[in-house]
Amino acid sequence: MILTTEQKNQVLKDLASLIAGNSDDIIAQNKLDLDKAGDLDLTLVDRLKVDEKKVQGMVSAVEEVIDLEDPQGVVLSQYDHPNGMKVENRVVPFGKILIIYESRPDVTIEAAISAFKAGNKIMLKGGKEARNSNLFLVKLWKEALSKNGIAEDFVTYLDIDRTETQRLLADNPYNLDLIIPRGGDGLINYIRTNTAVPLIISGRGNNFIYVHENADLDKALNLILNGKSRLSVCNAIDKVLFNKNIAGLDEWMAKVITAAQAMELVIHGDGEYFSQFNNVTSMKEKSMYAEEFLSADILFGIVDTMDEAIVKINQYSGGHSGVIVSSDKESAVQFQNEVDCAAVYHNASSRFTDGGQFGFGAEIAISTQKLHFRGPVGLGQLVTNKWFISGDGQIR
């Protein structure tokens, strides 16, 4: 069934109304999940919790996607063959997309709406910790589809256990065209090694800021602190590299450490330099550079040059976001060209790596791979292309 843009938008309008009208019930179902959370990690609890602000965020995300251009059917190129054939390359949906995710019930809405407007059928497999929230939100999805006379199987929730999930990945009984895993390294690596279905990897963060020797230090401090303004998100900052030639480094570093401590951050220092500061824990293992913290931890390091910073970022980061704080364009251009991340910033916060902030509306993931897309993934990336050729009996 091929849906028109008008049909898709009407489903989304009805979905937004249903979410807004059932806010109390959504929060009540989420409370059932929170009550069962037990000793779940605090960052996962933050992702699991749904309050009025998150409900409104879901509604806003739906409304934003309604306003976005529908990519389905767009002609990318056309060619009139000398023999009279008309050759067109058009945008088409992937087909059937499975989204596997942990903790975040809002993914049930915000990721699925992008896939839906791009013309795909969506299968959702959320974590057991969010089961009540997810089932209720999918119920609203099905009400919106049914109200418009559209098959409810456009959005399907897989309420299955681990064994069935393993079979799903290995055997692909639903003929999936694409899987998008959203979660930690353990989930992503497990799916990668247990399925032959193509993936878009929504990879880990582990993002770095490099403070160049000529940086505006007020800007640098604000960017470091803003990078840790939320701990459980993949666009948070985990590592900060400081150029050793920053004027007045010792005095300013004390200011940075005081501000970080005021935010209750746990500061780890790489090297002897940081032993002069109180309440900075010495980094135990180099492997810490490769960790995505998703916590109040932050690691500070000193580098001799920008080139050293670039090498270290490319060695250890998750390929998500990198930031340079610098007062000259030349160093920024080199950094942005040579740092191998999906998003590279000059004098701006990594917290902007987000589909909504990039003008996509709701995002389905932030891809840290290079095929078939990189960075925030919205409905414009949840498509592929297909050749349409019309002739009148031509043979070769």
Rank of each mutant, 00 (worst) to 15 (best):
S317I: 03
A296V: 05
I66V: 15
K121H: 06
S390I: 08
N207Q: 05
V65P: 06
R230H: 13
V59Q: 06
N347H: 07
K142Y: 10
F274V: 01
V74H: 14
K219I: 09
K36N: 14
G119E: 00
K96I: 12
K117V: 09
A151S: 12
V256H: 07
N194M: 05
M253A: 10
T165A: 06
R162A: 12
P173V: 03
I200T: 11
Y157G: 10
A236E: 08
E264L: 09
A332L: 00
T4C: 12
K53F: 07
L68F: 14
G391T: 06
V55C: 07
K228T: 05
R90K: 15
V87R: 03
A254Y: 01
G21C: 13
L137S: 08
G119C: 02
I366F: 11
F300R: 03
D159P: 08
G73W: 02
L32N: 12
Y101G: 05
Q394Y: 01
L168T: 00
G126F: 03
A196M: 10
Y101P: 09
L217T: 04
K286T: 14
E363H: 07
R131Y: 10
V74F: 11
V50K: 00
V280K: 00
A20G: 07
V138N: 01
D153K: 00
E330S: 09
P93G: 00
I100F: 04
L168P: 04
L169K: 04
G38N: 14
G271T: 06
I66P: 15
L68P: 07
N347F: 02
N245D: 15
R230C: 14
K13R: 08
